[in-house]
Amino acid sequence: MVRERYENELLKLKKKIVEMGDMSNEVIQNGMRSFIDLDYELAKSTVAMDDVIDNKEMEVETSVLRLIALQQPMAGDLRLITSCLKISLDLERMSDLAVNIALLSERIDEEHIKPLIDTEKMGNIAYSMLKDSIIAFETSDIELAKQTAKKDEEIDKLFYSVWMELIEMMSSVCKDNSLITNASNLLFVIRYLERIGDHACNICESVVYMVTGERVELN
């Protein structure tokens, strides 16, 4: 083969994404399990996985930069490499969110307000979506990718129904329906703002790296 080293580097990069996908999957599963069962030990070990995944993301980024700088990839190779970079960012964000779920287990007072049937279902769908998306990536199966993305509708539906159910539950004790609606909307707004802040921190970290070549944790 003409470019054996290059081929090997591409294969290694692909493998890193698959490994990172497996890790993220584990974090999502464990994060959900720890929250549902209020298992603080599991929550702790889930949170600890965050650094491992961050390191994996950096490994992917380094490989991508090296491949672009040294091999001048083209066509399908270039698409693979840039996709790996984007997928690694998504996996890192997904893991962060799963870690947040694990951290919330410690904030639940004594027990959950209701059996978490739909919430667990949402977790299972998210888990299977990630699993299938990584299989689709590994096998370049666009049909599987398309089918997998469709499952997002189920999550969206469940999200809406759980949200409504929660508002009803809160209304039954509070009676002031509009207050609960507004408060829960506000809850989302502050959540989104908090996420925006996180992303802004990531940009700041990228700027430090861009200018100095040093990787720093600013968040």
């Binding site: 083969m1 003409v2 470019r3 290059y6 091999q71 990839p73 083209m74 066509a75 399908g76």
Partner: peptide, 10 residues
Amino acid sequence: TEDYITGRFG
């Protein structure tokens, strides 16, 4: 074409 421009032969 893909094989050539990605350096797999030529």
